[in-house]
Amino acid sequence: MSKNEWAQPFLKWAGGKRQLLPEIIKYIPANIDTYYEPFVGAGAVLLHLQPDKAVSNDINSELINTYQVVRDHIDDLIADLSKHVNDKDYFYRIRELDRKEEFKFLTPVERASRMIYLNKTCFNGLFRVNSQGQFNVPFGNYKNPSIVNEKVLRAVHDYLVNADVKFLNGDFAEAVEGAKKGDFVYFDPPYDPVSDTSSFTSYSLHRFDAKQQIRLKELFDELNDRGCRVMLSNSTTPFIKDLYKDYHVKIVGAKRNINSKASGRGEIDEVLVMNYGEE
């Protein structure tokens, strides 16, 4: 299947991989049976590779619903997105829906439309929820945000309907239960914080702490034993470098544009961990 260059991330996402893509693709295996991405996020790697067969997972149910709607109901989604306006009062009315009983009665299309609208108009494109699972990012006050990027949305739709891409909404370990020799798994988990104030794991109610990082490493080991080729990206903390010291570790630079403080943006070092050599 030929690639569509317009099939790109349609959401801005904390930890998104668009900036790191040039480094990641240097080390992607040439031949992949099934591509697995248990923390798909905005899907930069998935949409760049556009594999014929993939299993994509995320713990964020609103995100996975949005992918499914882009695949299955693109015309209805674009029509609903066109109803939204870039207005502060309107933004807060839409944002407050998940605090009301009526939220559970929204259709999948309406939920996906809300997700994309909030992402395009909220401050810095963050997706963040509070302890009750309610979206709590303030209005971004942007002059002319692209709420309806129809060309990109239709390109992503075309890819998803022409490829065998399965979307899951569960634990990262469950997402790779079927992975076997010949498959490629890319892990892009919430990063180990480089400082006490840098942690951002509020994509959902589920926090990703050191215990989860250790559980992920144990799964990395298990996939290695199965014969899968596995790549993981994370921050260059001593904890992560020690955790994966038995594997190939590459230090790479990536720009970060999502941070509540301007001083936290810019180029930072990250690690790519692989259980195979350069191909």
Results as ranks from 00 to 15, higher is better:
212 Q>V: 10
170 G>P: 03
47 L>D: 00
110 E>W: 08
24 I>P: 04
212 Q>I: 05
219 L>M: 15
204 S>Y: 06
171 D>M: 10
265 R>L: 06
128 R>M: 03
178 G>C: 04
257 N>C: 04
248 H>S: 02
124 N>F: 05
159 Y>C: 02
24 I>L: 07
111 R>P: 00
85 V>A: 05
234 N>P: 03
144 N>W: 11
140 G>M: 01
259 N>W: 13
140 G>C: 02
114 R>A: 06
86 N>K: 03
123 F>G: 03
142 Y>K: 14
279 E>C: 12
275 N>K: 05
7 A>I: 11
100 K>Q: 14
124 N>E: 06
188 D>T: 00
112 A>L: 09
258 I>S: 03
205 L>H: 13
66 T>L: 13
43 G>Q: 02
222 E>W: 10
279 E>N: 14
244 Y>E: 11
200 F>L: 10
205 L>V: 11
156 V>W: 01
218 E>F: 07
263 S>P: 02
49 L>V: 08
164 D>L: 12
13 W>D: 03
34 T>H: 05
159 Y>H: 08
193 P>M: 01
169 N>Q: 06
170 G>K: 05
22 P>Y: 12
59 I>E: 07
175 A>S: 15
11 L>C: 08
271 V>Q: 10
195 S>V: 10
123 F>R: 05
35 Y>C: 00
217 K>I: 09
177 E>L: 13
89 D>E: 13
149 N>R: 15
